[in-house]
Design a protein around this nucleic acid. Sequence first.
DNA 1: TCTAATTGCGCAATCGTTTACACTTATTTT
DNA 2: AAAATAAGTGTAAACGATTGCGCAATTAGA
Lengths: 345, 345
Amino acid sequence: MKEKKTTIHEIAKALNTTASTVSRALNNNPRISEETRNKVLKMAQKLGYEPNTMAASLRRGHSKIIGIIVPYADRIFFSSVIRGIEEEVKKSGYNVIICQSYEKIENEIEDVNALMAAQVAGIIISISRETNKFDHLKKVMNKDKPLVLFDRTAESINTSSVAIDDFQGAYSAVNHLIENGYKQIAFFSGNKKVSIFRERFRGYQAAMRDNNLAIPDEYIIEVPSDVDQGKLVTEKLMSLPNPPDAICSSSDFSALGAIKWLKENNYKVPGDVGVIGFGNDPFTQYLEPTMTSVDQKSKDMGKTAAQVLLEQLEGKNSIARKVLLSPELMIRDSSQKLSIKKAAV
Amino acid sequence: MKEKKTTIHEIAKALNTTASTVSRALNNNPRISEETRNKVLKMAQKLGYEPNTMAASLRRGHSKIIGIIVPYADRIFFSSVIRGIEEEVKKSGYNVIICQSYEKIENEIEDVNALMAAQVAGIIISISRETNKFDHLKKVMNKDKPLVLFDRTAESINTSSVAIDDFQGAYSAVNHLIENGYKQIAFFSGNKKVSIFRERFRGYQAAMRDNNLAIPDEYIIEVPSDVDQGKLVTEKLMSLPNPPDAICSSSDFSALGAIKWLKENNYKVPGDVGVIGFGNDPFTQYLEPTMTSVDQKSKDMGKTAAQVLLEQLEGKNSIARKVLLSPELMIRDSSQKLSIKKAAV
DNA sequence: TCTAATTGCGCAATCGTTTACACTTATTTT
DNA sequence: AAAATAAGTGTAAACGATTGCGCAATTAGA
């Protein structure tokens, strides 16, 4: 049953010419006459020719495959970026190969090696939370393979990156809360060792400062992106002598925890307490109240990362580009106006 | 800056032997002495050798890459299956390459060709909604490449497949509603041309029949997996002279639409109307009420599909296996008991 | 002690393409 | 009309690893 594959040699033989001519015809080499090209194309069609990309890659020194490394492929943010990348690179005839680091640097290093061994044309990566050494990434650059970081970037390595302006995201979120009358705004931060969380925190600070609002130390909480953890810290926050009237979170999940705890304890959201999340996970729009959240432009991010990589691949540009995308505040219900009664106090 | 790559030839030269010995040592060929093997391993390490998988693949005739084709890579079900596959095949040294069909058969065909050209070792695919011809898949089989379908399978092609028992999923969902006192159960179906939706419908029918419950024709509605569409058809259903007291949906999204419409129109869910979704999307647990839904075991499905493929790859088994996984009914609030008042009527 | 089997390794072909180089013709240039 | 340029193909050497075949040296068999 197994069909034998046709190679360029058989096409050549059938046409009484040589493999090189066929190869050139197939690759649109300008030094081939239209006539020959057409004959080759027709014969290739007829013989059901399908190129062996392995052979081509071996010869060229790299494949038409882009490697992607993400912490988890099934998190909506990452899968959405992946989709964006795939859509973009496909236009140029590339495919994507996915690796997951599970937030472990060892896996990340292994993945990089595997991708290099597979002769990928370039790598797009969102580094793991743990990643604090960058030798594996430098190795990629030393081999002259384009490397693009996204979302979680690193200053200590001089390569292209695409991220959203996390500072601005948090800034506009906090600003929006303030416009709606909230003044005592607490902040749920992620792990501040990670740059995106530092940036969001800075955005929060700046917005508060620009509006002449105080930031009590107790209002800043580092909390994992998790519903139950969000509940827990909300309870602590609200039992403060001077509880906040709003929460700006670095994560949709901890924000959800906050909303849940608040509702269970008879706070009105919004009204008594305003809440904003970060990430714009799809579930935010199904909640009650629907949750205001900062959209991270995941698909755009993937698309842009792909474009930057392709640019580099095609040699148009070899200097590192740092692209910052603008996040979009998705205003929904959870952040609407502070209730009059409270506002009057 | 560009490092030169070390090949087995350089290792051979350094050890004053030949590439074939090095190759064999590296591949654990039994005909190499322990001593030689160790020397080779050490030297490979020292020279920073990294195998060129392209070359190996070219020679072997296939790569250590598994192709995956899904409609959309960023839908939680598919991304979760992908994650399962990746985790499993990685253990055997394989990588995965992702293609998206966007539910179009033309894309699917193109993807198959691209994967074949990339000499993937095998293909795992969930076919598009449109796919009604299978020549592209037969081509894969004719080239002796293992092929595994998942979730959306096809009877007309004799290859391995992994899916959940959709019949059982719907059956147990309906049964659970009946146990909770609901009797007038409507069914939201997907497109009945797709086998999984036919199966779910059959499960619903069987459960109703086994409990001697009537199925009015108006209770069966074909509705896309979409919140607004779910709202729309719910409105129609509830304005029937004899409206249902429960809805079993083939999709979480249309079920969500139902819940939304019902709440907006002052029906209690559960109580007045019970609702069950299908898919167990993460958002179901964040709703109010939390939504009962049938879990599709997506990660298991990926894992199993990978195992079936690997089995075939390693030649242990060349006959087609059809695996049916058991879905799990995730019982939450939306399907709890019919209220007494209504039940008394 | 002599043959037979086993072990360990080298030789060289091979996988299917790409591409630098050389070689014809045909076309311009001067 | 001779010389220079261009256009279109062919030759053959890569790319880096795998593997059937064969040869030598060692061990076992008898």
